[in-house]
Amino acid sequence: MTEYKLVVVGAGGVGKSALTIQLIQNHFVDEYDPTIEDSYRKQVVIDGETCLLDILDTAGQEEYSAMRDQYMRTGEGFLCVFAINNTKSFEDIHHYREQIKRVKDSEDVPMVLVGNKCDLPSRTVDTKQAQDLARSYGIPFIETSAKTRQGVDDAFYTLVREIRKHKEKMSKDGKKKKKKSKTKCVIM
């Protein structure tokens, strides 16, 4: 069974824990209790493949930012979460993405942009803004509501699919490099 290491990042209060708990335990946590770091595991079937999701729910508070490099190193894919009623959390996505790329030393890291709290009427981040940002990053965008469960499975499952595509691409690139290195030079 394939294991996928997913990391949920975003500013404090955007609903990272609520999304994760909704996926794992099928219930909505409405009281806000700032996370330092929590880890969850769940076995699911995605596109006919049974897999184990190892999900790291991270601290959004700035005082825990020193811990970010460590979990970013171990993560295979990242859910970059903002709240649709919090423009600052949307603007912060850029910083999370840049930090992930720096730590992973790669421009090509599996990510999904997630606009959470889409059940709320007080939207300050337009869907088109988020779609445009995701398009500019070359990553999928999904709106979710941890409260109603809308888009929750889709967000995590899409990230797994992005990781699969990335692994497939990397193995193809690896095979191309191996083929090239088999060419021999004969000096007579």
Rank of each mutant, 00 (worst) to 15 (best):
K176R: 03
R149V: 10
Q131G: 08
A155D: 00
R164V: 14
E168I: 08
Q131S: 11
K176G: 10
T127V: 08
D132N: 10
A155Y: 01
R135L: 08
E162V: 01
L159N: 00
R149A: 14
I139Y: 04
V160Y: 02
K169V: 10
V152N: 07
Q129F: 11
V186K: 01
L159Y: 00
A130Q: 06
K128F: 06
Y157P: 06
E143G: 05
K177R: 03
G138L: 00
S145W: 06
V160I: 14
L133F: 10
K175S: 07
L133K: 03
D153C: 12
H166E: 08
K128A: 09
R164L: 14
Q129A: 12
C185S: 15
R149K: 13
M170W: 12
D126T: 06
D173C: 04
E162Y: 01
I139L: 10
Q150A: 11
A155G: 03
K167C: 04
G138H: 01
L159W: 00
S136D: 14
D126P: 02
K184G: 14
E143V: 00
E162L: 04
F156V: 15
F156P: 00
T127H: 07
T127G: 08
A155T: 03
V152W: 15
K178E: 11
K128Q: 09
Y157W: 10
D153Q: 13
Q129S: 05
D173F: 04
Y157N: 12
R161Q: 14
Y137G: 02
K180L: 14
L133Y: 06
I163R: 00
G138I: 00
D154R: 08
S136L: 09
I139R: 01
K175W: 02
K178R: 02
S136W: 02
K169A: 11
I187G: 15
K128W: 05
K172N: 15
K177W: 02
A134P: 00
R135H: 10
V186F: 06
Y157A: 15
K177S: 10
Q131I: 07
T127S: 11
G174A: 12
R135T: 11
K177G: 06
G151S: 15
A134S: 05
V152L: 15
Y157Q: 14
K165I: 07
M170G: 08
G174V: 09
T158D: 12
K182V: 02
D153N: 11
A130I: 15
S145P: 00
T183H: 00
E162D: 04
S145C: 06
K165W: 00
R149T: 15
H166M: 13
K167P: 01
V160H: 02
T144I: 15
D153T: 12
K128R: 07
S136R: 02
K172W: 14
V160N: 01
K172D: 12
K169C: 11
K165E: 08
D126L: 05
V160K: 01
Q150M: 05
K169E: 11
K165D: 15
D153H: 13
M188H: 14
D132F: 03
I139V: 08
A130K: 01
H166L: 09
T158P: 01
D153K: 13
K128E: 11
D132W: 02
K167E: 12
T158N: 07
G138A: 05
Y137V: 08
S145M: 04
K169M: 10
D153V: 13
G151T: 15
D132R: 04
G151Y: 02
R161P: 00
M170R: 07
T148S: 08
S136A: 13
S145E: 14
V160G: 01
K184L: 00
F156W: 07
S145T: 11
K176W: 02
M188C: 06
M188G: 13
S181G: 12
G138V: 00
R161G: 08
K176C: 10
R135S: 09
E162G: 04
E168Y: 14
K175R: 03
K182F: 03
V152Q: 04
V125R: 02
H166F: 12
M188T: 15
Q131Y: 10
K177L: 11
D173A: 08
K172R: 10
D126V: 06
F156E: 00
T158V: 04
K165S: 10
A134N: 01
K165R: 04
A130E: 05
D154H: 09
S136V: 05
R135G: 06
A130F: 14
K178A: 09
K176Y: 12
A130D: 02
G138Y: 00
A146Y: 04
D173P: 13
T183L: 01
F156M: 15
V160A: 02
G174S: 13
S145A: 07
D126F: 09
A155H: 01
Q131C: 09
Q131V: 07
D132C: 04
F156H: 01
H166G: 10
K176F: 06
F141S: 04
K128L: 07
M188W: 12
D153L: 13
M170D: 15
S181F: 00
V125S: 12
K128H: 06
A146G: 15
L133D: 02
K177A: 00
K184V: 00
D153I: 13
D126S: 10
R149G: 15
Q131N: 11
K182L: 03
I187L: 15
K167Q: 09
A155N: 00
D153Y: 12
K172V: 12
K167T: 04
A130T: 04
A155P: 09
K165M: 11
R164E: 13
C185A: 15
Q131P: 01
K178V: 08
Q131M: 12
V152Y: 11
K172G: 13
A130L: 14
R161M: 01
R135F: 06
K169Y: 10
D154Q: 12
T158C: 06
V152E: 07
Q129G: 09
R149E: 14
H166P: 02
K169H: 04
K165F: 02
D153G: 10
V152M: 14
